[in-house]
Design a protein around this nucleic acid. Sequence first.
DNA 1: AATATAGTTCTATTAAATGGAATTTTCAAA
DNA 2: TTTGAAAATTCCATTTAATAGAACTATATT
Lengths: 269, 269
Amino acid sequence: MSKDGGILARYAMTLETLAAAPDGLSLMEVVQATGLPRGTVHRLLGALRGIGYIAPRGGRKIYVLGPRLLRLLHLGVAPAAVSSLVQPMLEKLVTRFKETAFVAKLVGADVQSVAMVVPGSDGQSYVQPGRVMPVHAAASAKAIFAFQDEALVEEVLSRPRTRYTENTRVEEAELRADLEQVRRQGFALCDEELDPGVLSYACPVHLEGAGVLYSIGLVGLSRRLGDHPRSEVVATLRAAAEAFSKGLPSGLHRPVIGEVPALGEERSG
Amino acid sequence: MSKDGGILARYAMTLETLAAAPDGLSLMEVVQATGLPRGTVHRLLGALRGIGYIAPRGGRKIYVLGPRLLRLLHLGVAPAAVSSLVQPMLEKLVTRFKETAFVAKLVGADVQSVAMVVPGSDGQSYVQPGRVMPVHAAASAKAIFAFQDEALVEEVLSRPRTRYTENTRVEEAELRADLEQVRRQGFALCDEELDPGVLSYACPVHLEGAGVLYSIGLVGLSRRLGDHPRSEVVATLRAAAEAFSKGLPSGLHRPVIGEVPALGEERSG
DNA sequence: AATATAGTTCTATTAAATGGAATTTTCAAA
DNA sequence: TTTGAAAATTCCATTTAATAGAACTATATT
């Protein structure tokens, strides 16, 4: 084997060089930073761009870390690490609506609850980590799966589903319609689909460049939570989701200005 | 060129497979998930482990995402995303010491101030983002550079330095001794090295698996800030640094239980 | 238009990836 | 402890990609 650690070491070096540059780097800047030959850097950048780990910024030949890498990094973060971050947000929600607030995360092909605050006596909260939410009967899960790849959705929908209540959707067509509605409306609703008399809302958390990996929502008795105007609940959750996405390491240094790089193959452009 | 997107596509597939499994996967599980031949997967995992992108969990041959990926995430995060997180911590420090508190971040080969709270009338705070701290005359920068790779330190020390005050260290040997002291003591001190009459403390923020990318500290007039016992200031800053590192998404799925994988080469273990 | 600089393509050489088979290790059941 | 099966690792002839430097093209700059 080579003395320098193989080809991956070069790719890693390139990624770290780009990560350290807030505004992205041109090919020649990478050449200078890494000490690699021009031709080599050109090929490395091309390969990294090919798999979406880096992306050109704007129309120019300036490269920054790409969406696929960001998504990977977020997936790699432990759910527990997030909970302290969102605790204050959840407590605000609880104060306002006097209902249980939660954050859920995509873990593999499951959605797990990550943090939860209940309207206890004086802001007392407990976390219920790792509980897997049923995809077909939880607003938290719907809010996330509505924005995942078709492949993942298909895998998830291929699993057997329990009919918890009369309202539980078990047919694939119904669920797909649900997900489509979530995409249109920007929030998920679960009206007595999991537990009778229990209503839940959830909003997807869009992480810039990394898609949707979290949702934030409220659960409560239909009679109480249902009394709040839907628009009010949703608006509040949306605001919380936005704050969440800004509080998390979500984006690249700067939003991509100009052309959005097309997915799929775009050779010899 | 190959039809499948090259070798990186396989590495990416492997990483994503592992990312979807919080508890890690064995070689054969990766084989099944990816459809690649055994021998190939074995080599891929070996290469990824070699650069720290994945790591064996416990003593067993189960692989999870590695620390080096996390560092990439933090490096890629915009400084602004951090400031909201640390604001409350800084305000606590200000309340306690009646001095300016700040957080600084490693950005490329510079240390920039990311957030700052001054002891204004009633908790009023303003952020002064992006100010680059001189490496040789700022506690914030010393606290960070003391824990960086030799290559980075060397690059930084190769730059010209201004002698701001009588106390400013400009000799490389002096600075290296400073950094060594920071490593030993766990905090950095800057005693009238940048501005006459101004004293600053900073503690490194150790992110689990990602090294030191931030520092948190205090700045104030020597006469006032110097009145506080050094041990008190340092203990408080250390606590803040620890809280900071817990508040940031710092951990991978699970801490490695059992043996800690050695750095460098550890073949045929 | 001239010139320098960045980016891209080309090419013979070197090095690594490939995957199937052989071998060793690991682990659990007898 | 023995035994057997699965997992992990090593091996190796073949294929394929990486390498680095030079030639070339595109893109500013004056």
